[in-house]
Amino acid sequence: MNDTTDAFDGLDATTGLDLLRTGRITVEGRLTSASNATLYCTVSDAPRSAACVYKPVAGERPLWDFPDGTLAGREVSAFSVSEALGWGIVPPTVHRDGPFGEGMVQLWVHGDTTVDLVALSHQTDNADLRRMAVFDAVINNSDRKIGHLLPTAGGHLYGCDHGVSFAEDYKLRTVLWQWRGEPLTEDALAALESVRDMLKDPGSALSDVLGRHLSGPEVYALGGRVDLLIHHRIHPYPAPDWPSVPWPPV
């Protein structure tokens, strides 16, 4: 797990994850631009305290292409895949009870506001950004917008909002298509092979999390995407019959 502290109120990611699981959540406000109920909170268990995002299942807006009440679990599943890849793309995330019932709770990333996110999204020589493109292909992310890129002052790149991921059908929509058709890096292939091994082991931590939050066919489809990436050894192409970029892209 990535242990940068600049992003999480001085906490490393491991400590932050423990705090998310055990701390008391206090709602401070609501992010009104979000389509689902997204609450800005503080999680604390004195003396530790950190900002976090809380998305209660009760506040999820019904979608035509995802089962009701599953978005929080998909966010937690995305964190589990990120950890299995070893890339620390998703901030520490848990599924737990909160002031408005069960939901997803994720550490708030204090990002570097001096970074031009539009320019960042077009880079071709950024290794973290390229890993994120692979990660999105694995989880079948249908909503990778520019605003979901969270660079930190310490140089690490996080991503957020993975609730509409893990569909069985190919739904990849992203602003990160600059590597389409290019060979995967050896680093990416090694990480994918590690994930494939974990998916084949029903006793792995990854299999446990996915089994609790995704359907059997969705987990099977995830394994198929990993196998295809390893077999073809290239970044995927956009689907010809599916919008390839989310709208709005920012």
Rank of each mutant, 00 (worst) to 15 (best):
D143M: 01
D169E: 14
K200L: 12
D161L: 10
M132N: 08
S165A: 14
Y158L: 10
R180F: 06
L210E: 02
A137S: 15
S207A: 15
Y158E: 09
A153H: 13
H122Q: 13
L157I: 11
F166T: 02
D143A: 06
L129P: 07
H156R: 13
V175W: 09
V195D: 00
D125V: 02
L189E: 09
K200G: 08
W177I: 13
H148P: 01
L214D: 01
G159N: 11
D187T: 15
D197M: 08
D136W: 05
R180Y: 06
P183K: 11
F135T: 05
R130G: 00
A205F: 03
P217F: 00
A191D: 06
E182K: 15
L176N: 09
A221D: 11
E182S: 15
R180C: 14
P151E: 00
G203Y: 08
P202Y: 05
D197F: 04
R130T: 12
G203F: 06
R212H: 09
A188P: 04
S121Y: 07
S121R: 05
V195H: 05
D187G: 02
Y170E: 14
A153G: 14
W179L: 12
D197V: 14
L184E: 03
W179C: 12
Q178E: 13
G223L: 11
E186H: 13
Q123M: 11
G147L: 00
D201N: 15
D197E: 15
E168I: 15
R212W: 00
R212M: 02
F166P: 07
E168Q: 14
H148W: 06
R196G: 04
I146W: 05
T124A: 11
I146L: 00
V134T: 14
K145D: 02
C160W: 03
A137M: 11
I139N: 05
K171R: 15
D187I: 10
R196Y: 03
Y220S: 14
D169G: 12
V134N: 03
G223V: 12
S121I: 05
A221S: 13
V195E: 00
L189H: 04
H122C: 10
Y170L: 12
E182M: 14
K171T: 13
T174C: 10
R180L: 06
L150E: 07
R144S: 07
L149A: 03
D197Y: 06
R144C: 08
R130V: 06
V209W: 02
P183V: 10
D125E: 12
G163S: 11
G154W: 08
K200V: 01
G163N: 07
L206P: 05
H148A: 04
H213S: 07
G154I: 10
H213Y: 15
P202N: 03
N141L: 09
Y220L: 13
E182G: 11
K171I: 02
K145C: 02
P183E: 10
A221T: 11
A221R: 13
D161Y: 07
P217Y: 03
G147T: 01
V138A: 01
L172W: 13
L214Q: 00
D197S: 15
H148N: 11
A205W: 01
Q178N: 13
P151I: 00
V219S: 07
G211K: 03
R173F: 09
S204N: 03
N140L: 08
D128R: 14
L157R: 04
D161N: 14
A167E: 08
Y170H: 15
V209L: 05
L189G: 01
V219P: 01
P151G: 05
V219K: 08
